[in-house]
Amino acid sequence: MTRYIVANTTDIPQGERKIVELEGRSVGIFNLDGEYYALLNRCPHAGAPLCEHGTVFGVASADGPDAPIDYERQRSLRCPWHAWEFDIRTGVSFYDPRNARVRKYEVEVVPGSPEDVVDPDGGRQDGPLVLEGYAVSVEGDVVVVDTSRRRPGRTRDQAERRRPAATA
């Protein structure tokens, strides 16, 4: 239901990740060429710490066994335990999109220092920074993770309207 400031952008170098705890769940935030992606740090297969120890690979596809193999780097997160791969952008598995998926969170980069962007009326919270005892004294852009669930078929407006009732 909430958007959390999880890091200063300089905390997550290109190709690196940061693991934070949001609402009691471990979440990994990745910086891939300035694009940020956040996934639950738990593999849907058998619970491995997917974001903490998974490897970022590309995704391979081919139209046929004798067709060229197309390969796009930095698209998949491969589990450290049994090597299942998930689309790092969506959390959806490449081999079973309907049934195997990792929870995905929306991430955005917000300009300004954390003090500037904390909204006391329930918008962005600095929860994880506090939870981790993180000194909220950084300057520059911050990475914000949204923990609200996005359900298909419900518009952002509908979601907004439901929110007060759900939290009441």
Binding site: A62, P65, A67, I69, D70, H82, Y95, D96
Partner: peptide, 15 residues
């Protein structure tokens, strides 16, 4: 095992 080694056979798009 296909789930683990799918990238070896990317043309294999179903179980």
């Amino acid at each position: 095992l296909w789930k683990s080694y799918r990238p070896d056979v990317p043309w294999l798009t179903e179980r």
